[in-house]
Simulated scan of single mutants.
Amino acid sequence: MTSVLSSVDQRTNLVGQNRLELLLFRLQGPQFFGINVFKVREVLPCPALNSLPGAHNHVRGVAHVRGEPITVIDLSAATGGKPLVDLKTAFILVTEYNRHVQAFLVGNVERIVNVNWSEMLPPPAGVGRSHYMTAVTRIEGRMVQVIDVEKVFSEISPMQEEISESVKQAAEQIDLKDITVLVADDSAVARNQVRRALESMGVHVELVNDGKQALDWLVNKAGQTDNLAAQVPLLISDIEMPEMDGYTLTAEVRQNDKLKGIHVILHSSLSGVFNEVMIKKVGADQFIAKFHPDELASAVQKWLQPQLEQQPG
Rank of each mutant, 00 (worst) to 15 (best):
R138E: 15
P83F: 13
E68N: 13
E42L: 05
D74T: 09
V115W: 03
E110G: 00
A55G: 06
P45G: 00
G107N: 14
K88M: 06
N50F: 09
V85E: 14
G80D: 07
P83R: 15
A78T: 10
D86C: 12
K82H: 10
R60D: 01
L49I: 01
V65I: 15
L87M: 08
V85A: 12
V94N: 07
T134E: 12
L84P: 02
A125S: 07
W117Y: 15
P122G: 14
L121K: 15
P53G: 01
N50S: 06
Y97E: 14
S130I: 09
A55Q: 02
W117V: 05
I73L: 08
F104M: 02
Q102S: 06
A63L: 03
E140Q: 14
G107H: 13
E68C: 08
I112H: 02
C46L: 08
V85I: 10
L44W: 02
E140P: 04
Y97N: 10
E140W: 07
P47L: 02
K88G: 08
Y97W: 08
V136P: 03
H100N: 12
W117K: 03
K82E: 06
S118L: 02
T79Y: 05
D86F: 12
E119Q: 14
R138F: 15
F91L: 00
P122W: 13
Q102D: 05
H64F: 02
V106G: 01
A125Q: 10
I73W: 06
I70E: 01
G126F: 15
S76N: 06
P124E: 15
H131W: 07
V43I: 12
G126C: 12
H131N: 15
